[in-house]
């Protein structure tokens, strides 16, 4: 009964902060739409090329572009020697191929900060003109993993009212009437779950409408959002229970969500991680979601 009252009370409280409620509903949708624009996981090499300069090399350049156009899975553009290293580091190019060399056996040199294996794979791609084998997450997988990250942060915003209640003494007041505070926490958990789930469903509907590559089967749409909400609400409640202030809860949730997202393979494929982190990534809810999507 007490839990139910805490839940109803919290829904009323959040209704009184309509501005925050509206923003927290809109923001995930906007961010997801932006996410759709980011080319995560496209299986293609981005190559910068350095070509011989001057009028006398015009024919050579033309022949080179003709050859490059025939390669599959490779996007290329002429690189600027002035920003070469920055473009490589910031990921604009996976590699820069320098065709200014005049070696008969190997007419180009590869400049990259990637490891040897990737360098060799690219060399082979260019020589054979084959598609890159680099695998990534699909748009749906990546979007779901991203939403999991985002909703850990949003759930914490909702659950952080618990910290206020601890400070204002309303939690103590509850304990005067009820013997333990578990009911209060449970009420908060259910409230966070309901609000987060509603927001998540709204984001998924928006993504399905506006993002062409995003699709979920009925089974996925039923099961996975529930698990995502559960993850987010549990983590949010744990953060709020262990934080002394709202600012520390909010910043902790952002940091934790970022780390889980990275460990879970949202940005870096799990196969590319060191063995220890590959093991640790099993702890990330983002990975559970991606794996579940693959299983279902």
């Amino acid at each position: 009964m007490g839990t139910c009252q805490v839940l109803i009370n919290n829904l009323k409280r959040s209704w009184n902060h309509k501005g925050l409620l509206i923003i927290t509903f809109i923001l995930p949708v906007v961010l997801c739409l932006i996410l759709g624009l980011i080319p995560f996981g496209k299986a293609s090499w981005r190559i910068g090329i350095l070509v011989p300069e001057g009028a006398e090399a015009a024919g050579e350049r033309e022949a080179l572009y003709k050859n490059l156009a025939q390669l599959e899975g490779i996007k290329y553009e002429e690189a600027s020697p002035k920003t070469l290293h920055t473009d490589l580091i910031t990921g604009k190019y996976h590699m820069v191929v320098d065709f200014r060399h005049e070696d008969e056996k190997k007419p180009f040199a590869i400049i990259t900060y990637r490891n040897e294996a990737k360098k060799l794979a690219l060399e082979e791609s260019i020589l054979k003109g084959v598609r890159s084998k680099e695998e990534g997450l699909s748009l749906t997988e990546r979007a779901m993993a991203f939403l999991q990250t985002l909703f850990i942060i949003f759930s914490t915003i909702h659950a952080s009212a618990l910290i206020r209640d601890k400070q204002n003494g309303t939690l103590t007041r509850y304990r005067f009437a009820k013997k333990n505070q578990a009911g209060y926490h449970l009420g908060f958990f259910i409230y966070t779950f309901i609000i987060t789930h509603f927001q998540l469903l709204l984001s998924l509907v928006s993504l399905s409408i506006f993002e062409k590559g995003f699709s979920l089967t009925l089974m996925e749409a039923l099961v996975i959002p529930l698990l995502m909400t559960l993850n987010a609400a549990v983590i949010a409640l744990l953060i709020c229970l262990s934080s002394n202030s709202e600012v520390s809860a909010n910043v902790t949730s952002s940091s934790l969500a970022a780390i889980m997202s990275l460990l879970g393979g949202t940005f870096i494929s799990i196969e590319a991680m060191p063995p220890l982190l590959r093991l640790l990534s099993a702890l990330s809810p983002n990975r559970w979601i991606v794996e579940l999507l693959r299983v279902i």
């Binding site: 980011i38 995560f40 981005r46 553009e77 910031t90 990921g91 604009k92 996976h94 990275l262 940005f267």
Partner: peptide, 13 residues
């Protein structure tokens, strides 16, 4: 790219 370098050759992106 604070979490992972995001590169693109698409001018809009």
């Amino acid at each position: 790219g604070s979490f992972y370098p995001i590169g693109t050759l698409n001018p809009k992106l």
